[in-house]
């Protein structure tokens, strides 16, 4: 899922203080699961904004709404009433959700209330970790399902850097060495031979360096 974090209340207030009627709009998908922008967070952030505005003497009215999914045009219709009755929208969706809203509701200011961080998973309660860099040319099949592009701090593709200490990364001692995990995993599944193959330089062309990426499926187009 996409993992995000809320901006500080004062940052949010600075973004929206020029408006009178604001709707804080949550998203019921990834950001609900990572506890950053679901219905509950909408309620907390809206409350905090109302109180902060009041303490600063700003005439800001803040309402609350949450829709199923912000990054899909089909679901954006659910937000129509809330958007229509407000001067501006503070979206608690990921970056994709904010932009989808802005494209759908042209002429209405839409602001992002979260910092979209990464694609990751819940490792333990309250801890999310990045697992995928969306590089566009997946190499997971060569490394036992553990991504060196994302999880190795140096993105090493042909073996460890030899800097790890006690199986942990020398860049961040709290994180396990990705190459330790890769070796262990390949050993478990009997594919250690994979490590003997020299990997050619990775093709970074499908990554973000080429600008905004688009996928077109002719078989699904109408």
């Amino acid at each position: 899922m996409i993992v995000a974090q809320r901006k500080t209340i004062l940052d949010l207030l600075a973004i929206v203080e020029k408006h009178r009627k604001l709707v804080v709009l949550g998203c019921g998908t990834c950001v609900t699961v990572c506890l950053a922008g679901g219905q509950r967070e909408v309620s907390i952030i809206a409350s905090a904004l109302r109180m902060a505005a009041k303490l600063k003497g700003l005439p800001l009215e803040v309402s609350e709404a949450t829709i199923e999914r912000q990054c899909d045009n089909v679901f954006l219709e659910q937000a129509a009433d809330a958007v229509k009755t407000s001067d501006a929208v503070l979206s608690l969706g990921c970056g994709a959700g904010v932009q989808a809203l802005a494209e759908r509701y042209t002429g209405k200011p839409v602001y992002g209330g979260l910092n979209t961080a990464f694609i990751g998973i819940l490792e333990e309660r309250g801890v999310w970790a990045e697992k995928c860099a969306a590089c566009g040319a997946c190499v997971l099949h060569q490394y036992g399902g553990i991504c060196p592009v994302t999880r190795c701090a140096k993105h090493m593709l042909n073996g460890p850097c030899s800097g790890s200490r006690e199986d942990h990364c020398e860049v961040d001692a709290t994180r396990p060495c990705a190459w330790q995990l890769i070796h262990q995993r390949l050993k478990e599944i009997g594919q250690l031979d994979e490590l003997k193959k020299t990997k050619p330089p990775k093709n970074w062309r499908p990554s973000l360096s080429g600008g905004c990426r688009t996928i077109i499926r002719e078989d699904h187009r109408v």
Partner: peptide, 15 residues
């Protein structure tokens, strides 16, 4: 509570 100074606001909720 300073929030009460001008009357506590009533949040408007959309479905």
């Amino acid at each position: 509570n300073p929030i009460k100074r001008n009357g506590a606001p009533q949040p408007e909720n959309h479905a």
